[in-house]
Write a protein that binds this DNA or RNA. Structure first.
Lengths: 213, 213
DNA sequence: ATGGAGCTAGTACGAATGTTCGTTGACAGG
DNA sequence: CCTGTCAACGAACATTCGTACTAGCTCCAT
């Protein structure tokens, strides 16, 4: 990426700030005054350069038709994720019916920064109740982002439902023969061994969010 | 909140969509064509109503000077937060100089959904290295969002620097006489007692983020 | 009816704003 | 010295775009 002149950096910065403050982009003349430039044509000249360098996008003949591409300013940094409910020991894990996902309104949603999602699609959120996942460093009240698991591989961190114990738990998953080893995140804690048929994998956990009042 | 006409709802919706798609607000005429309205004056008329009802904000004589207030459409669902560095046991905690906060470019930033911040300002992020906070359910690699603490109250979750042990740790803070009790999040684990002068509080932890590959 | 309120139209004015054009000065290369 | 490029200027031009004005239509209470 080529180097920009001081004036260009200043313009770029101003456009971003203006956008943050007003909700719409500045005009050529706004930029002119803010950056102490004597002529609108100079602004235009430098805007062309900024566009050529890929820092902004311009829309000809459209007033305020400037878009900052910089990434930091980039659109869609957060995505609504459906908060399907709670996950608690002794309670079945809510199942995500595909119809629910398209339901019109009545679902609670949570806005999550896209960087937390690693580009995954169809992720949903569950609020953890109880301490069934405490040994995976997930506290009561934490929110886990779960990606529906079509298939699980050894070593994945999964939300597992232990049918016999009627307990939901978050562990690393290892299939060993016809038994499943569920390994806590904390190496000082012991693994759980369960019959393969006793374990129902709900999905992989993509992220954990904890909000402290 | 008063009821809006079908046409007004449609306009409101279109403005939001247009903004999402283009990065700048639509003109009166954009709205006119999109909503099949025969005259710009009708658009203006209804925009006035939308403003009166508190759904949008208009800026007179400024082209595309429309801002959607609705909340759902509300921009700024995520905020860039400076990622100041790492926090590790045996290493001093980076201090946030106010000048650094205004530094031009070179700082790493992390986008965080505003709901995680509880409206706090000047929050910064630190990546946790090591297991010094494992008993507060914070793993190696987790990111903590820290709000600079002007004052701490008993029971707050704080990032504390233990001078004598040269160790950073995340605990609940209780001042008891001239001693400080640092209580882990996990009730099964023992508290640490330290001399009040040996403890340096860096800030309150607002949230914990964990990203699982 | 009568008239006002609420909404929609069609048109036009004029300010806001993007863009072009002719010049100028600094500077490097031939 | 000449020439081309880069950056900057100031003025003018051409659209874009917000807003005002007038008028018609429906509903409803007077």
């Amino acid at each position: 990426m080529k180097k920009l002149s001081e004036r260009q950096v200043r313009m770029l910065r101003y456009i971003g700030d203006f956008l943050d403050e007003h909700g719409y982009p500045p005009t050529v003349r706004d930029i002119q005054y803010a950056c102490s430039i004597s002529s609108t044509s100079v602004v235009d000249y430098n805007l062309r350069i900024l566009e050529r360098e890929g820092r902004i996008r311009r829309f000809p003949d459209i007033s305020r038709g400037i878009e900052v591409l910089d990434g930091r300013q980039g659109r869609r940094h957060s995505t609504p994720v459906p908060l399907l409910g709670e996950i608690a020991a002794g309670q079945p894990i809510p199942v995500l019916a595909s119809e629910d996902y398209n339901a019109s309104e009545p679902m609670d949603t949570l806005d999550v920064t896209t960087s937390m999602l690693n580009g995954e699609k169809n992720v949903y959120a569950l609020r953890v109740r109880g301490l069934s996942m405490i040994d995976a460093l997930v506290d009561d009240g934490d929110v886990v982002l779960v990606k529906p698991a079509n298939e699980v591989r050894n070593g994945d961190m999964v939300v597992a439902w232990l049918k016999r114990d009627k307990e939901a738990t978050l562990k690393r998953f290892y299939l060993e023969g016809n038994r499943v080893r569920l390994q806590p995140a904390n190496s000082q804690m012991a693994a759980i061994y369960a019959d393969a048929e006793d374990v129902e994998v709900q999905g992989k956990v993509v992220a954990v969010l904890r909000n402290l009042a």
